[in-house]
Design a protein around this nucleic acid. Sequence first.
DNA 1: GGTCAGATTGTTAACGTGAACATGCGGGTC
DNA 2: GACCCGCATGTTCACGTTAACAATCTGACC
Lengths: 328, 328
Amino acid sequence: MVDVARLAGVSHQTVSRVLNNHPNVRQETARRVRAAIAELNYRPNRAARALVTGRSQLLGVVALNTSLFGPASLLTAFEGAAAAAGFAVSVGNVANLDRASISAVVERHLGQRVAGIVVIAPVASAAAALDHLTTDVPFVTIDGDPERNRAGVTVNQALGAHLATRYLLERGHSTVWHVTGPLEWFDAALRVRGWEQTLRDAGAEVPPVLPADWSAASGYRVGQTIARIPEVTAVFAANDHLALGILRALHEHGKRVPEDLSLVGFDDVPEAGYFIPPLTTVRPDFHAVARHALELLLGQIEAGVPSTAQMMLPPTLIERRSVAAPPF
Amino acid sequence: MVDVARLAGVSHQTVSRVLNNHPNVRQETARRVRAAIAELNYRPNRAARALVTGRSQLLGVVALNTSLFGPASLLTAFEGAAAAAGFAVSVGNVANLDRASISAVVERHLGQRVAGIVVIAPVASAAAALDHLTTDVPFVTIDGDPERNRAGVTVNQALGAHLATRYLLERGHSTVWHVTGPLEWFDAALRVRGWEQTLRDAGAEVPPVLPADWSAASGYRVGQTIARIPEVTAVFAANDHLALGILRALHEHGKRVPEDLSLVGFDDVPEAGYFIPPLTTVRPDFHAVARHALELLLGQIEAGVPSTAQMMLPPTLIERRSVAAPPF
DNA sequence: GGTCAGATTGTTAACGTGAACATGCGGGTC
DNA sequence: GACCCGCATGTTCACGTTAACAATCTGACC
């Protein structure tokens, strides 16, 4: 910076002012400074800036499994939004659900002096880890605990489940079975709740839930059970990969979708339209979630006070060909 | 740090020494310092450390589309390895292939004073953008241009394509058709090369390539063409999502896999085993790639000199049920 | 006991930046 | 003409850490 100042014939402080768009710099001076910056290929040192201002242009993300479709999409969308706002994003992936590993990642971010933290770890243990965090760094959760009074953006999971379930009931199915994700995930638990509530409101019988994890493999296992229960005519799977596994199990058992059995998924992965048959599913707006999460976070950073603003985004039902009226 | 020093009754420098595991600190002193650190909940300021040492504990990643399966897996694996080595990872996602946006992301990382950069952007324009980079920051490419003499780790794409093609030929198919990814991706181009070479070596006819992007949607489109060409008995798709789209198109046209037509994919996405039928595919070892990329990068950082070490990792063929002998 | 090597600790300076305050200059007001 | 105000710029300092060097202490050896 001093070199730039010398070349432009000004003091380093004037260079700093130009860089930060201070109002009181003569246009001609600013031009000279900019020319010097370009000539020397100078780049301000963020570390020094962070040191003196006490705030970095770095945002930390804590995510549970960034190779899953949902977290990966959220992460990508968030990074894009943050970059547009001039922030870099540091990721911290967690393999396990336990509080210790989540705390460790948060600590790492804190050490980097991030300006704010987003937690994409929709499980109770993550929420608990955050409770025990004594820090003044702003943070926001994505798909966090809706019961906790904390700033966050969530997809309205219950609404999504409601949409799927109602859609199936309206097609004439007497009830809808549900294959769940891991229930320690809020996503999974809330989908169960929305599904169950919709059935009750409609006066339909509530069949036992069929537990699984998020994988196609577990969907396949559960699908083999489903294929053996004659009364099942409609299934709502907690995500699209589960639905894929179910689809194959049914196929192997000679059950046709949608003729013998209707199926709805959740997430709308890019491939869902190319399953056999194309999958009717519920689409959350990951981009909107990420964008709002960033806004909430930047709001807290600028205001300097924690907020408890909550935002809940409605997903939409995507109709394809995996649903029909029940067989006789 | 000064507070910690006061509480422990030492100078701030001794605290620094304890933090950096300097050898010459009395055990008793170190214990007192650590106690003080714990009591005050002190966390060293990375920005200050980066400022004085000139090197951060931050690694930058430039990736092309982190919501695609390959890049997302690579990113996650890399982050895990980096975290284990005490490095944080800052992601920079690029939407477009043009040099300007890639340079912009690299510049962002440089501004953050990253200690090194990994580029997961397996396209020519990314490689070109890096050529024009005048910087002394170490960097490593993943799946970069194999012709450029630059430090990097790649999957042996040609070998993977060879494995898939040979496997099909050995089953008795007279030739193998190939659905490609976007050819500006090295991955795609190299798979084409490996496929073509294998056919030539076997004296088989080389059919025209069927171009697509990486998506199931484009696989579906190409699949509709394939279904109309009677002579096709074996297809090698450049990735699993393409294969999924092809599978559905064939299904709609009443072509059975593998009875009428055999299909092999690439990537081994977690769902590939649950396609209808389960997909035979080629699996790259993303974890190994990421681990080696990190090693290469840390090697350069420690040595202080750029390296041009190249590493190429062999993928493996995963046999499932989408391949059979050709029909009569 | 004196000397020296090595271990342990302390002191000072520097990293590059922005904040706070100081300076100088031009122009308007009384 | 004296005064004041606002703009443009410069000077000095502090941020929290590590490096370099200085100081002190310990113990072994002659």
